[in-house]
């Protein structure tokens, strides 16, 4: 017990350099990922749930909607990927809120680390989780007969677009995570907003039988736009238009929610 404290030799530095900040971010991302090891529920969320969705949708709805499970899979897998991505952004807010309410965040803020590293580390870790889910979804889909008509370039493009969009959408999650006072409320928000949002789109069904007012919304819904872009990239069809519209949606969401989230964040911490 003789060396528990004191004698830190260094002269304190004035501020954190960007490279050091990046290192802090990587360390904090590591921390978020190691958490999974001790919380099997999260792994379940990340792995089994997406796979279950693919199986259920394909075999329960497939025949009724598209005539056969195989055809439906081709139509719906991009939509399922988008839905999963939207839900996955909520983990950022959930984790952030857990850190804020449990006091982990204050501990981190009392350390001489880059101010932006805790948030960036979490978002980075969630992006890795997101990538894992998408890989799993595509993999399971391919086992069930989903064909990548545009090959690897299409897949890489879809991946990049999805991660870029998720990054933008996670600002919504950050805002919610900072505003609410317990992690469960982030989940409630996720279900009451994201669930209807993803269903009022063409992610799971062709929109022809929906009432006109609903079709009008479905056409502009970012879920529809993103699902169309993924379809174009993965199985063929128009690409440029849907991708551009997806990027515009991402930019709009980021432009609105990033400043709001950062302001709320600064106010809270």
């Amino acid at each position: 017990m003789t060396t528990l404290a004191v004698d830190r030799p260094l002269v304190p530095t004035r501020r954190v350099g960007p490279l050091t900040g990046l290192r802090h971010t990587l360390t904090l991302a590591w921390r978020s990922l190691v958490q999974i090891k001790h919380n099997p529920m999260e792994l379940l969320d990340l792995s089994i749930q997406p796979v279950m969705f693919v199986l259920l949708f394909t075999y329960v709805f497939g025949g009724a909607i598209s005539g056969s499970p195989g055809e439906y899979l081709t139509f719906a897998l991009p939509g399922i990927i988008v839905q999963n991505a939207f839900f996955a952004t909520m983990t950022t807010g959930f984790g952030l809120n857990t850190d804020l309410t449990k006091g982990v965040f204050d501990r981190l803020r009392s350390l001489p680390i880059a101010r932006w590293a805790p948030l960036a580390g979490r978002i980075l870790a969630d992006t890795v989780k997101q990538a894992w889910s998408v890989t799993l979804l595509v993999g399971v889909g391919m086992i069930l007969g989903f064909r990548l008509e545009n090959g690897l370039p299409g897949l890489v493009g879809a991946f990049a677009l999805l991660l870029a969009f998720s990054l933008a959408a996670s600002w919504i999650s950050v805002l919610v995570g900072v505003l609410v006072n317990e992690p469960e409320k982030v989940q409630i928000f996720g279900f009451t907003v994201i669930f209807p949002l993803t269903f009022t789109s063409n992610a799971f069904v062709p929109t022809g039988t929906m009432p006109g007012w609903l079709q009008a919304w479905v056409a502009v819904n970012p879920v529809t736009v993103l699902a169309d872009a993924l379809r174009g990239l993965l199985i063929g069809g128009p690409v440029a238009g849907p991708v551009l519209r997806s990027l515009i949606w991402g930019a709009v969401i980021a432009a609105i929610f990033a400043p709001l989230a950062l302001r709320a964040f600064k106010r809270r911490v």
Binding site: T13, R31, V34, Q35, K102, V104, S110
Partner: peptide
């Protein structure tokens, strides 16, 4: 930033991560 290099903080709110060992 310099102050943070000199201090340690333990309290009701500055907590460890319960999910980690």
């Amino acid at each position: 930033h310099r102050v943070r290099q000199l201090i340690g903080l333990t309290g009701q709110y500055a907590s460890v991560d319960e999910a980690l060992t």
